[in-house]
């Protein structure tokens, strides 16, 4: 499980995370909702040790990762897959090389089996046979899916998804939602999904957390979210510009 306690982070003179607490249980899928610029991506980067909190504690399976050296962090990171908001594909490599990079670098598989695993991951995101495409030639939705294939290649225990369905058509978005669910059901993966897409949030999330003002202001099951009277959550799910959340 992942446990965040009192996590604070200032970035560019702004308190982005301000005493954030969050528990993510093993095997659950938690969806993080919140307006743009509230620090959802920053939160994911803290969980995987790409950013270090100014204060607070982050435990992954009982290991405190705040204060760990880069080498020890790498051991923790090997259990993680991450899909970046902008996909962050390596543009000097083909699609297949992107997906297979970690497998090659960490010698997780015999070299001959890497292409098999790469093909499997690409098929899982609906991109069968895309190995030899250049990343520059991909559409936004395809980039996202290649990023996702890359995130699952190492069979991680934890997967962090930063807006996996943003910019996808509804049908492809559903393919991705199904994939998130099936990774959880078949492989027992623990997932954190950042999204704006309420439709997919209800579909994939065991629990939904609302991030606002640098904290988790509400957390509950999809049914609890639908039923809540919390004005912040209501405003967000109703998509209204009137309410306690000030549009920027």
């Amino acid at each position: 499980m992942i446990r965040l306690r009192g996590v604070k982070k200032r970035l560019g003179g702004k308190r982005v995370l301000d005493g954030l607490d969050l528990d993510i249980e093993r095997g659950e899928t938690i969806v993080v909702l919140g307006p743009s610029g509230t620090g959802k991506s920053v939160l994911l980067k803290h969980i995987i040790g790409l950013m270090i909190p100014d204060e607070g504690s982050i435990e992954v399976d009982g290991v405190e990762i705040v204060g760990l050296g880069e080498k020890a962090l790498d051991e923790v990171r090997k259990n993680f897959g991450m899909l970046f908001q902008g996909a962050a594909l390596f543009d000097s490599m083909s699609v297949g090389e992107n997906v297979g990079l970690a497998l090659r670098e960490h010698r997780r598989l015999p070299v001959a089996q890497i292409p098999v695993r790469v093909a499997e991951c690409l098929a899982a995101v609906g991109l069968k046979g895309a190995e030899d495409l250049r990343t520059a030639s991909l559409s936004g939705g395809m980039r996202k899916r290649v990023g996702l294939a890359r995130a699952i290649a190492m069979n991680p225990d934890f997967i962090l998804y930063d807006e996996p369905t943003t910019g996808l058509d509804p049908i492809t978005a559903d393919v991705i939602d199904q994939l998130v669910r099936s990774l959880q059901e078949k492989m027992g993966v623990t997932s954190v999904v950042v999204t704006h897409d309420l439709h997919s949030a209800y579909k994939v999330g065991d629990r939904l957390a609302m991030l606002y003002g640098g904290r988790v202001v509400f957390i509950g099951t999809p049914d609890e979210v639908r039923a809540t009277r919390d004005p912040l959550v209501r405003q967000f799910i109703e998509g209204s510009s009137v309410g306690p959340i000030q549009p920027v």
């Binding site: 790409l50 880069e70 993680f80 991450m82 970046f84 908001q85 962050a88 190492m154």
Partner: peptide
């Protein structure tokens, strides 16, 4: 230019996230 582009498009973060120094 190459590494700078990788930095601003989070490719360097992606490497670190994959435990590749």
């Amino acid at each position: 230019a190459e590494l700078g582009t990788m930095k601003v498009t989070e490719q360097i973060d992606a490497l670190r996230a994959m435990a590749i120094n």
